[in-house]
């Protein structure tokens, strides 16, 4: 980051960075088996960058965990493998074996079943298998209303459930890290970052992100009210045939059949930020799973989805 004019008056990004680093170090110091969720998206990229910075000159003392639904964009997987190699960090990839056996396909089974089996169930499996006592995630409080009230260190019972009415009070920067065997905490070091902060930090720190965030001519087709990209030939033929080349980009990344593209000319970071600032809709709008009903994320979290 560029030198600030007066180091005694830290900028908001410097303060957010310091706060996040404090949180990551607290996890490393207090838990025996932590893991960092890595979704390959921009928030994950920022979180990984912060973890690298927090433990310099050592590597982060915890592995990354990616829950692979097998329907992520190919460019995401390429990016993931490249970054892990460059940074020399440990990566664990988990896919729900039952889902593979069932041949779960969002085009056939729909987003709800796909998300439940390949994401929610897969995450629970991965967490149970790993026996992690702390799971670091990239959620931000500005993303969605139910997140605004979630703690930075958020307690989960043996079944990974969140009880929004029975949260531990969280004061100052002192975090209660005590848990029993089998219980865990979700830790959100980016809690106080906004979407703009994330982009600005990526820009200042020159953090690599998946190229799908930048506008480019891509083959897209209308599907359930969103514009989705033809990423492989698992997309039904009749849909693929209707695809046209359009200049689009993605505001969030996930499973390609469930992630809507937006028309855009933004091919640089300042242009993306400009587009975001002038946009009239929030970033989650492109995510098909959130649209079911208001409060749906709250329900998913109580069920154990991050």
């Amino acid at each position: 980051m560029r030198q600030n004019h007066d180091p005694k008056k830290p900028t908001h990004l410097k303060q957010l960075e310091a706060e996040s680093i404090h949180i990551l170090r607290e996890v490393a110091a207090s838990f025996s088996n932590p893991v960092m969720m890595y979704s390959i998206g921009k928030d994950s990229s920022v979180m990984l960058h912060l973890a690298i910075k927090a433990f310099y000159p050592a590597k982060p003392p915890f592995p990354l965990l990616h829950v692979d639904t097998l329907w992520k964009f190919r460019e995401m997987i390429e990016f993931r493998d490249r970054r892990v190699k460059e940074l020399g960090v440990d990566l664990i990839v988990h896919t729900n074996p039952e889902g593979i056996e069932m041949g779960i396909n969002p085009f056939i089974h729909g987003s709800k079943i796909h998300t439940d089996i390949m994401k929610t169930q897969a995450l629970k499996q991965a967490l149970n298998e790993g026996g992690y006592d702390a799971v670091i995630g990239g959620a931000r409080r500005d993303e969605e209303k139910s997140r605004a009230k979630e703690r930075i260190f958020s307690f989960r019972d043996k079944h990974h459930r969140w009880d929004p009415k029975n949260q531990r009070p969280e004061l100052w920067n002192i975090f209660n890290t005590r848990i029993e065997r089998g219980e865990s905490v979700r830790v959100f070091p980016l809690s106080n970052w906004t979407e703009l902060d994330i982009w600005q930090y990526i820009y200042l720190e020159k953090i690599p992100i998946v190229p799908l965030y930048f506008a480019k001519e891509r083959p897209v087709v209308e599907f359930e009210g969103a514009k989705i990209m033809v990423d492989d030939d698992r997309m039904p033929k009749e849909l693929r045939q209707k695809a046209t080349m359009q200049r689009v980009r993605f505001r969030t990344l996930g499973c390609y059949p469930l992630t809507g593209a937006v028309d855009s000319d933004a091919s640089t970071l300042p242009e993306i930020i400009k587009e975001m600032l002038l946009s009239r809709s929030s970033e989650r709008e492109g995510r098909l799973i959130d649209k079911d009903q208001e409060g749906s994320m709250e329900r998913k979290k109580i069920e154990g989805y991050f």
Partner: peptide, 8 residues
């Protein structure tokens, strides 16, 4: 550039 200098 301006946004970067904001405090909290």
């Amino acid at each position: 550039e301006e946004h970067e200098k904001k405090d909290l």
